[in-house]
Amino acid sequence: MTVSPVVPTTRYTPPPRGWYKRNEIAITPWLFLAPGVLFFLVYVIAPIYQSFGLSFYNWNGLGDVRTNGEYVGLQNYNKLFGLNGERADRNFQISLWNNLKWLVLYLLAIPAGLFIALFLNQTVRGIRIYKSLFFFPFVISQVVVGLVFSWFYLPNNGLFTIMTGWVGIEIRGGVLGNPTWATYGIIAAGLWPQTAYCMILYLTGLNAVDPEQVEAARLDGAKGPKMLWYVIIPQLKPATFIAFVVTIIGALRSFDLVSIMTGGGPFGSTRVLSYYVFEKSLSERGLQYGYAAAVAVILFLIMLVFISYFLWSMYQDEKGAR
């Protein structure tokens, strides 16, 4: 930011306050905001509108959408939902359904994270190291997590397969080769780092729990689960809120794991919306950019529900802070 006021200064007359100087407090924030906002508008906000526009076209991604594409109105959406005499897209339904599974099951990371946090919230020797090591999975790339779990699930030779074999459960095709189990297998892999994330949120939250309240409750005879439910968890509300937000986002962004572990297979049973968008556009046999954009728009609208909720609660906080 180079904002040097060019004000002629004479020695004896006090310098007249220039336009900038007079409006400094009003202008400065905009100057500071300009580069960040500009970047954000170009790379994030504008593309959202462009995707909305693309979703009304039939375009194979080659050349330019205006010359090579064909405006088809709502046809892409009709195809997705089977409206107006179009056949409903089965793959879209599978993706939607799987996304729902992701959303619900991914939330398990929150209680699991709390559980581990409670387990680790002690002050024994070396506990710091334990805490870091428990957090470890979150730092690793999802690509690596996906690879590791897919080896874990290998048919015949996978450790998971061997272990389920001990108790007499045999999953046909291995976890990832079985259309009934594959999605759950991937979600389990995703829960691993996500639980670590929630755990660290709760560990921080537990640190800040008011010890006096805990003692007071103890004197009142509260302990164990009762104490947890009525005294601790309410105090952990901010941590729970963040854990909820990041977990929902994580669930809807489940692209990496699906792509690495199954590529949407077997026979498309592990598709999720984020993967389906990619599959329909940039993948080897994609080439339906308009259609993919329509799927992306649906995914965006789902996310918008959560974004609105999040913004709304932030707005409440802001109002309270003023």
Binding site: G173, G177, P179, G265, P266, F267, G268, E284, R285, G286, L287, Q288
Partner: peptide, 22 residues
């Protein structure tokens, strides 16, 4: 198959073949 049939058809069909085989 995936060079003779259009990409979209090939994608749907080969997924079907895999499902049929299982």
């Amino acid at each position: 198959f995936d060079r003779d049939a259009p990409a979209e058809m090939a994608a749907v069909a080969m997924e079907g073949f895999q499902e049929f085989m299982v």
